[in-house]
Amino acid sequence: MVATLQVENLETHFPSRDGIVRAVDGVSFAIEPGEILGLVGESGSGKSITGFSILGLIDPPGRIANGSIKFKGEELTTASPERLRQLRGARIAMIFQDPMMTLNPVLRIDTQMIETVQAHEKVSEAAARVRCVETLKAVGIAAPEDRLKSYPHQFSGGMRQRIAIATALLHKPDLIIADEPTTALDVTIQGQILYEMRKLCRETGTALIWITHDLSVVAGLADRIMVMYAGKIVETGKIATVIERPQHPYTRGLIGSVPGAMPRGKRLFQIPGMTPALINLPPGCRFKNRCARADATCEAMPELAELQPGHGVRCHHPFGAEPLTLAEVR
């Protein structure tokens, strides 16, 4: 079976006055139909830029400097803008964080959704409208016929995000890239959206990349997880493996800083320092300055090594069978 998406050694660079910003630096992964992949990292880790690179949405002077992105076997990095436009919205869709920015505030929902349908298929407006109604129903919007005639500001945040999701689903894409789509929403609404997204992926075989900074959001959603730090993947594996037996110190730090993992009122685990600026990075492991286990070997960049089948870690000192204690907490 051909993977829905196969990314090999992707490098996305942004030249700047002070040097090249290596936002994504040698990222490789694959995703199968129907699979949900969680892409986790802090701001500035390159997780969103990875998503944008797949869609060919990197604005100059930024560019994909190296690597290949194969969508169902088709190379995207060398594809023409026309071909990319055919794929975007139809076969690969993206859901953004802020639904108010995705929807045009001066156009009615039906105008925007029907436009999306007709951009990729020659169908009558009536047929397109029927499709919109069905999709809105699928994401849990009541009375879709009437709601189609509303403007974005007449919807609540959760409803707007549902409309953005419905728009992404119009063409039953093979791949959806969701960039923190529930960060701005309440927990009850987030719960509804996670539930519906998972159901849709199971039913339609759509592959989903869920980008987030919050491990607990993807913990109950994803099949597989990829943790990014400073442009590189530091740990990847099955969700249960990574959360129960994290090997990279950064992953452990992220898990320890989620409130709820620690007894109430105790200090949370703090990863000391800040994410490094991505300009002129020193050689070696990028996490070494914040890492309690770093030593001289960390002056060389570790490879992403497979500890077990499917569980890769980029660290010279993985934790192995050491239980998840947070002794590092001051």
Binding site: T188, G191, D214, G220
Partner: peptide, 24 residues
């Protein structure tokens, strides 16, 4: 009870929860 059921937790168990319907 509904709020607690829906709060995302750091456990890798598949929760086939049925979220509370509707919005505030």
């Amino acid at each position: 009870q509904a709020l607690l059921a829906e709060a995302p937790k750091l456990v890798a168990t598949r929760r086939d929860y049925l979220p509370i319907k509707g919005e505030i």
